[in-house]
Amino acid sequence: MATDYDAPRKTEEEQSEDSIEELKARRHEKNSGKVDEDEVEAAESFELPGADLSHEELAVQVVPRKSDEFTCSSCFLVHHRSQLAEEKGDRLICRDCAY
């Protein structure tokens, strides 16, 4: 932005005397260039490179549970037996979920 150094400058008193209407008008002018855009609609239009995974197959090797492990019936994570907090029948609850 070009600056005219020959133009008279306002003193601090003159700057503080700017009317509320002028300040509101300046703020409105700054915001007038913005466009309201729906974020969800904009996100749906983006296509990421390599995002088409329809031809991919997921290969997972399932490891059997060890004798000193259990699956929490609340969070469904596998924990060591030392993390067992409650045992209600066949429901095993880990320490994290018990509190």
Rank of each mutant, 00 (worst) to 15 (best):
A2L: 07
A2Y: 11
D6P: 01
A7D: 04
A7H: 02
A7P: 00
P8N: 02
P8F: 04
T11Q: 02
T11K: 08
Q15L: 15
Q15A: 15
S16C: 03
E17W: 13
S19T: 15
S19P: 10
E22K: 13
E22F: 09
K24L: 04
R27G: 08
R27H: 08
H28V: 15
N31P: 00
N31S: 06
G33L: 11
K34C: 09
D38P: 07
E39L: 13
E39S: 14
A43Q: 03
S45W: 04
S45G: 07
F46M: 12
F46W: 05
E47K: 14
E47M: 11
G50V: 01
A51V: 07
A51Q: 12
A51Y: 06
D52Q: 12
S54G: 07
S54R: 09
H55W: 01
H55L: 00
E57I: 10
L58Q: 07
V60Y: 03
V60P: 00
V60I: 06
Q61W: 05
P64N: 03
R65G: 01
D68C: 11
F70M: 05
T71D: 01
C72K: 04
S73Y: 05
S74C: 09
S74I: 11
C75P: 05
L77K: 03
V78L: 10
V78A: 09
H79G: 00
H80M: 04
H80V: 01
R81I: 05
S82Q: 06
L84S: 05
L84F: 03
L84D: 00
L84P: 02
E86S: 07
E87Y: 01
K88M: 10
G89P: 10
D90R: 05
R91L: 06
R91M: 04
L92E: 04
R95F: 03
R95K: 14
D96N: 07
C97Y: 12
A98I: 00
A98S: 06
Y99D: 01
Y99P: 00
